[in-house]
Simulated assay, not measured.
Amino acid sequence: MAEGNSFVSSTVHVDVKDYYGKRLQKTSDLQSNACVAPAEPTPPFIRQALKKVHPEVTARYYGCGLVVPECLEGCRILDLGSGSGRDCYMLSQLVGEKGHVTGIDMTEGQLAVAMAYVDHHMREFAYKTPNVSFVQGYIEALSEAGLEKNSFDIIISNCVVNLSPDKKKVLSEAYSVLKDGGELYFSDVYSNERLTEEIKNHKVLWGECLGGALWWKDLLQFAEEVGFSPPRLVTANVITVDNQELQDALGNFKFVSATYRLFKVPKGNTKPCQVIYNGTITGMEENFKFDCRYTFKVNEVVEVDAEVSSILTNSRFAADFTFQPPGGPCGPIGVKPKAGIVDPFELALQQEKQGPGSDTGGCCRTQDATCCK
Rank of each mutant, 00 (worst) to 15 (best):
Q274L: 10
Y277I: 04
T313K: 13
V301L: 10
S310T: 10
I333F: 03
P326N: 04
V335A: 15
L312Y: 08
Y260R: 08
V238W: 05
I311W: 02
P326E: 03
V256K: 09
E286R: 15
E286V: 10
I281L: 02
L250V: 10
D248C: 11
L250I: 12
L250Y: 04
V301R: 08
G268F: 06
V335H: 11
G340V: 07
Q324S: 02
Y294G: 08
E285W: 03
A319T: 12
T295G: 02
G327N: 07
E303D: 12
K338H: 03
C292Q: 10
G328A: 12
S315E: 02
P325F: 00
K254V: 04
F253D: 05
V238Q: 09
T282P: 01
S309E: 02
N243S: 13
V302P: 01
I276A: 00
L262Q: 04
K271I: 04
R261L: 02
K254H: 06
A319S: 15
T280H: 09
A249D: 04
T282I: 07
D248G: 06
C330Q: 15
I276L: 04
S310E: 10
S257V: 01
K297F: 07
V301F: 03
C292M: 08
L246E: 06
Q247V: 14
P326V: 15
N237K: 13
N314C: 14
I311Y: 05
N278W: 00
F317P: 00
F263Q: 06
T235H: 10
A339E: 13
F288W: 07
S309D: 06
T280Y: 04
N269D: 03
T259Y: 06
Y260F: 03
T282V: 13
D320S: 15
G331V: 11
Q247M: 15
K264P: 00
V302S: 10
N299F: 12
L312H: 02
V241I: 15
A258V: 08
Y294N: 08
N314F: 05
T240P: 03
Q244H: 10
F323R: 01
V256L: 08
Q247D: 12
F317H: 13
T240C: 12
G334E: 06
R293I: 01
F263V: 06
P272L: 09
E245V: 15
G328H: 09
K338V: 12
V302N: 14
K289W: 00
C292Y: 06
A249C: 09
F317C: 08
M284W: 06
M284K: 14
F255I: 07
A258M: 10
Y294E: 08
V304F: 07
I333G: 01
A318S: 13
G251H: 13
G268K: 13
S310G: 14
Q244Y: 09
V275R: 11
L246K: 14
P325S: 10
T259F: 01
V238N: 14
L312N: 09
K254N: 05
Q247K: 15
P329I: 11
N278G: 03
I281Y: 02
A319V: 02
V265I: 07
F323E: 00
T270G: 00
Y294Q: 07
K271N: 05
T313G: 03
G251C: 11
S309N: 03
A339F: 01
L312R: 12
G279Y: 00
G340H: 14
F255K: 11
